[in-house]
Design a protein around this nucleic acid. Structure first.
Length: 578
DNA sequence: GCCGTTTTCGGCCCGACTGTTTTCAGTCG
């Protein structure tokens, strides 16, 4: 059974959810949530560890280790099967409603026999909910609003690509408000996750109530969900939820940690604070005896007081970063690039700018080299013939003196269904750099996709594999591959794997990056820009690589031109690259 | 259910907002 972790994570999550609904002790629920997180974060196949090895993992004890073994032997966890039988299935639908939690769901079910969203609607319309103890007319209103939001699918995660624009616009507007001394995006946008649940905006001000009122009346805001003295929740025109928190400038650092999350990271850090005789909240790090403020103005200061090196936001996922920061072994993650190894000019059918314009943008972005990887001919509408590439080669040579970036003669090859490439070996050998990508037959199974990609990797002119799984966030999932086999082939053949920086792709994902880094596979971080403005996307690629703990040494386009050419030569010669 | 630089038992992150309550429970992040 390959890579059991994902399914195990789902099953532990379901156990936690069902336990919540059955009224279990909340610490027991949390134990299963931790087991879920531990399983998801694990970078070895848990299906291959024995019981002792399992319970040595943080968050996995004797009981959860036994369940992992049960899962391996029986394909299911008996406790989960039992819970599914015991907990009314309708309850799961009910707690999807924003503002409706397990306690209330249980009460609705037990006292009004509500076992579905439809039954909830009927009960609300009949005015029956308001008569339950602890509930009232206002609760009915809120539940109706929650049902409406559920219908609007506002509770789903949204691709970063779809929110980054409005997020940055809101930030600019907030910074321009009177009495705002500082403002920042926090939450998963700051951690640069590939999808976003809601937007978190932190504001430092001495006049919180005024600032929050002004934000609540912004034109981008459609609805105010909650407005307090320091906290505001609104829905934007596109049903995106925005949580705003106003804090005193003296607590900026502590508040930024709190609001950036992740939640699991915060819990971990706060537990550490407790063990060190302190307590951490958004208001600062305080000594438990005497309430003295130990730190709070800036993030690094808070971490330092806890014996931790500064943890970059992209690493705050409780995937071992707190322990690493305590040990001083946090990786020095990649922050800048020397070049871009995947981009298009208007020689490609879908390119939107000339080579000169793209080169100027690359130079302005501080890049030393830019590989012009226009599409190859198997991508019928967009691709160039070998003759066109020859013409382009002459153009590139003529431009070399006139642009402030080294142009590399590149191509984005298409990986055929059997791993074949667009041109013969002689044509392919003329390129400085080739990225090869799958653009067709996305529906094949994992074995087939893995095989065609590995075949392409074995070609001496294929230097990197572009957007490995073909996913387009919010539009289509990627196809499955056997990633361990891909990693093994990348190492064996000296081929790099691309982190495609388009926020629509971010492919490799952060999890894939982490496993690639563990395996010692070389990465590229590439914009796949089709117009000058898209070079700015490199920041998302860098962040995704950071989320996978990649250092500059792991990234091909952090090397200088000599280093890059050395990698290409080794591939050509069939010697494994370092 | 997990875990130990005080602990193998007794804790378990911390706080805001809302609604239905006269002091708090539920939900959320």
């Amino acid at each position: 059974m390959p890579w059991a972790n994902e399914e195990l994570g789902r099953q532990f999550a379901e156990i936690a959810d069902l336990l919540k609904l059955s009224g279990a002790d909340r610490f027991r629920v949390r134990a299963y949530e931790r087991a879920r997180d531990a399983v998801n974060a694990a970078r070895v196949d848990l299906g291959e560890l024995d019981s002792d090895e399992l319970s040595a993992l943080e968050g996995i004890g004797g009981s959860t280790a036994r369940k992992i073994v049960e899962f391996r032997l029986m394909g299911e966890i008996p406790m989960l099967t039992e819970l599914r039988r015991e907990v009314p299935s309708g309850l799961i639908a009910l707690v999807q409603v924003p503002g409706l939690g397990p306690k209330t769901a249980r009460q609705l079910h037990d006292q009004l026999a509500i076992d579905s969203l439809d039954a909830l609607r009927t009960a609300l319309d009949a005015g029956r909910v308001r008569d339950l103890p602890g509930l009232g007319v206002k609760t009915e209103e809120n539940l109706r609003a929650g049902l409406a939001r559920l219908d609007a699918t506002a509770t789903r995660r949204t691709p970063l690509a779809d929110v980054i624009g409005v997020a940055e616009e809101l930030l600019i507007r907030t910074r321009a408000l009177p009495d705002v001394s500082e403002a920042a995006l926090a939450g998963s946008v700051r951690r640069v996750r590939d999808t976003i649940g809601d937007l978190d905006l932190l504001v430092a001000t001495q006049a919180p109530a005024d600032v929050l009122r002004r934000i609540a009346s912004d034109q981008l805001v459609r609805d105010v969900v909650a407005l307090g003295d320091t906290k505001l929740t609104v829905l934007t025109l596109r049903d995106l939820q925005v949580d705003v928190r106003a804090v005193d400038p003296a607590a900026w650092g502590a508040a930024l940690i709190y609001f950036t999350g992740s939640k699991a990271h915060n819990v971990r850090v706060r537990e550490l604070a407790l063990r060190r005789g302190a307590t951490l909240s958004e208001y600062g790090l305080f000594a438990r005896d005497g309430d003295a403020l130990l730190a709070g103005g800036d993030e690094a200061g808070v971490y330092a007081h806890l014996g931790l090196t500064m943890i970059p936001p992209t690493l705050r996922e409780d995937r071992g970063e707190v322990a690493a920061a305590a040990a001083g072994t946090l990786p020095d993650v990649v922050t800048t690039l020397r070049g871009d190894l995947h981009g298009h000019s208007d020689w490609s059918g879908d390119g939107r700018a000339s080579i000169e314009e793209m080169a100027a943008a690359a130079a302005a972005a501080g890049l030393e080299y830019w590989a012009v990887t226009d599409h190859a001919e198997a991508l019928a509408i967009n691709g160039l013939t070998a003759e066109q590439f020859a013409q382009r080669r002459a153009v590139l040579a003529g431009l070399a003196e006139h642009v402030d970036v080294t142009l590399l003669d590149g191509a984005e090859l298409n990986i055929g269904v059997d791993g074949e490439l667009d041109y013969d070996d002689e044509v392919l050998a003329r390129f400085d750099f080739c990225v090869a990508s799958v653009h067709s037959a996305l529906g094949r199974d994992a074995a087939s996709q893995t095989a065609r990609i590995i075949t392409a990797m074995q070609h001496p002119s294929v230097h990197a594999i572009g957007h490995l799984t073909g996913r387009k966030l919010g539009l289509r999932p990627g196809f499955e591959v056997h990633f361990d086999e891909i990693l093994e082939a990348a190492l064996r053949t000296g081929t790099a794997l691309e982190v495609n920086a388009s926020p629509r792709r971010l492919d490799l994902s952060d999890d894939h990056v982490r496993r690639a880094v563990d395996a010692g596979v070389t990465l590229t971080i590439s914009s796949d820009a089709h117009q000058p403005s898209e070079l700015d996307n490199l920041r998302f690629g860098i962040a995704t690589a950071q989320r996978g703990w990649a250092r500059a040494a792991d990234v091909l386009n952090c090397r200088d031109l000599d280093g890059l050419r050395d990698f290409v030569e080794r591939k050509r010669a069939g010697t494994r690259s370092s």
